[in-house]
Amino acid sequence: MSNEQSPAPAQRRALRLGVAGPVGTGKSSLIATVCRNLADELSLGVITNDIYTDEDARFLRSAGVLPGERIRAVETGACPHTAIRDDITMNLLAVEDLERDFAPLDVVLVESGGDNLTATFSPGLVDAQIFVLDVAGGGDVARKGGPGIARADLLVINKTDLGPHVDVDVGRMVADAATARNGAPVLALSRKDEDSVEKLCAWVRWINREHRHGRHLPTDPGPMAPHFHASGEADELFHTHDETR
């Protein structure tokens, strides 16, 4: 495992938090939201994985949520899934460089290039990961499952405010996701819904605390490693989803 190769013991270095999910579901926007709300209390850095350009890094820099030098782009050469799973060297070096240049960092957010439902982060690259879907992608996507949907540390169903416009029953979609995840946390998110944004931030604070205290065991959502999600506290953050109905 790469953790054995890391320059510092796991609890001393930053939490490496992956953000994966299909194209256009709002990964960059979610990261911008986290940065906007937590940059004052946590020292943050961002690595983006772009396919054609450094568009995502530019978006985040222009959003002004973090100093530009804390946002770095990795070019993945048409292989976004390879860069976060099969061959993580480029991303790992980018993360380690960022941690070194801005030590001590609390959280490094790694945004995957937009890919399909099967792409998840290697446990050698991140400690925890968020998988992002959006309601505009179709209400049945959550039910279809897949490693990221079923076993990421957090599943976000984004753009819930768009539900009525795309004929998606958000409550139903969240319930399907909760079923697919055996009760592991699901967050219905809209950046227009301050309460949901606060829940996202609360989850990031919580996972960071778990990591800091050595209580978080990185688990791989990959298809070969289904796992039991043991944390009770995280579930309590999301025990109801009713308010998004």
């Binding site: 292989c79 390879t82 061959d87 060297t89």
Partner: peptide, 11 residues
């Protein structure tokens, strides 16, 4: 070519 050293990103 699958040796994980990032060569796949280059043409």
């Amino acid at each position: 070519g699958r040796f994980p050293a990032g060569g796949y990103a280059h043409s």
